[in-house]
């Protein structure tokens, strides 16, 4: 019996496909998420919108917060560690967390290196803005990728930008001749073998979710139609006026993302979505997506 293998790690991500992973800060939130049909929850001390408002150094959540959520729900529980903070990751693995998010939403602990994720039995998910970043994370051992978007804004524009960047680059690689791939790998700052793999299969070797700015059912369906295999919803649920309704609606549209009738039906009477932020009003040094190397 082999545990913690690449197949087992990427396999869990495969099982999450077509699903919604919701940020939760209390066991009560986690229960609401599970009952709404979330395929996993992300255990946090604060949702990204509150993190953004509070400022300061943001670290891994208190283990008690994570454990309380793990005890409450039977779906997989994810938790975030800081970029490069492999000891926080060791702690999360020791707690029995099902998936570790090495996340730009927390304050980076290392501005040069990410965690060498192959050393862990728990699988990791990492954010990306483009294909080069995605492939660097996969080569370090990420078993799942998510486009970053701009967390805590309720504004989908960055998520769209990042998903389009990844998908466009995958299509471009698919149409290249083999000799062009070496130059492309150099340009992307990505390992050649992963670039060649994409050339052959036309897709990333791991599951790719969308994240950062999803606030409505239509936002979720937009990301799915652009090529996401599932969506993370952070502040979008528990910063809205009716979290249960919006959680259920986003779960339904993520399944029926190609069916405008369903999207129209579930979008009715959801109350106020979370307040949104124009990205241009955010000072450059407060943007989260550029964190990651």
């Amino acid at each position: 019996m082999d545990k913690g293998t690449w197949t087992v790690k990427t396999g869990l991500a495969q099982m999450l496909k077509g699903g919604v992973i919701m940020d939760v800060v209390t066991p009560e939130h986690a229960k609401i998420a599970e009952e709404a049909g979330a395929c996993a929850v992300m255990a946090l001390e604060r949702v990204p919108a509150d993190i953004r408002a509070a400022g300061g150094v943001v670290r891994m959540a208190d283990p008690n917060v994570i454990l309380a959520i793990m005890e409450t729900v039977s779906i997989p529980v994810m938790a975030k560690c800081r970029i490069g903070h492999f000891v926080e990751a060791q702690v999360l693995e020791a707690l029995g967390v099902d998936f570790i998010d090495e996340s730009e939403v927390l304050t980076p602990a290392d501005e040069t290196h990410h965690i060498w994720k192959h050393d862990f039995k728990a699988p990791f998910v990492c954010g990306c803005r483009d294909l080069g970043e995605a492939l660097r994370r996969i080569s370090e051992g990420a078993a799942m990728i998510r486009t970053k978007g701009e967390a805590g804004t309720g504004n989908i524009v960055e998520a769209v930008r990042h998903m389009r960047a990844v998908m466009d680059e995958i299509r471009k690689i698919g149409s290249m001749t083999t000799d062009e791939l070496v130059a492309e790998a150099k340009e992307l700052g990505a390992p050649l073998e992963l670039v060649m793999d994409i050339h052959k299969t036309g897709r990333l070797p791991v599951v790719n979710y969308a994240a950062g700015g999803v606030a409505t059912p239509a936002d979720a369906a937009l990301m799915m139609q652009l090529g996401a295999e599932g969506v993370f919803v952070g502040s979008g649920i528990f910063k809205s006026s009716d979290p249960e309704a919006i959680a259920r609606a986003i779960v339904k549209t993520t399944t029926h993302y190609r069916d405008p009738q369903v999207i129209a039906e579930v979008s009715k009477g959801l109350g106020a979505a979370m307040p949104g932020l124009d990205i241009k009003t955010i000072p450059t040094d407060e943007l989260l997506a550029p964190r990651g190397w």
């Binding site: 019996m1 082999d2 293998t5 197949t7 087992v8 029995g96 039995k121 699988p123």
Partner: peptide
């Protein structure tokens, strides 16, 4: 979840 959490997932 009879075998435990994800770290106990396995192939055989």
């Amino acid at each position: 979840n009879a075998f435990g959490r994800q770290v106990d997932s396995f192939e055989t």
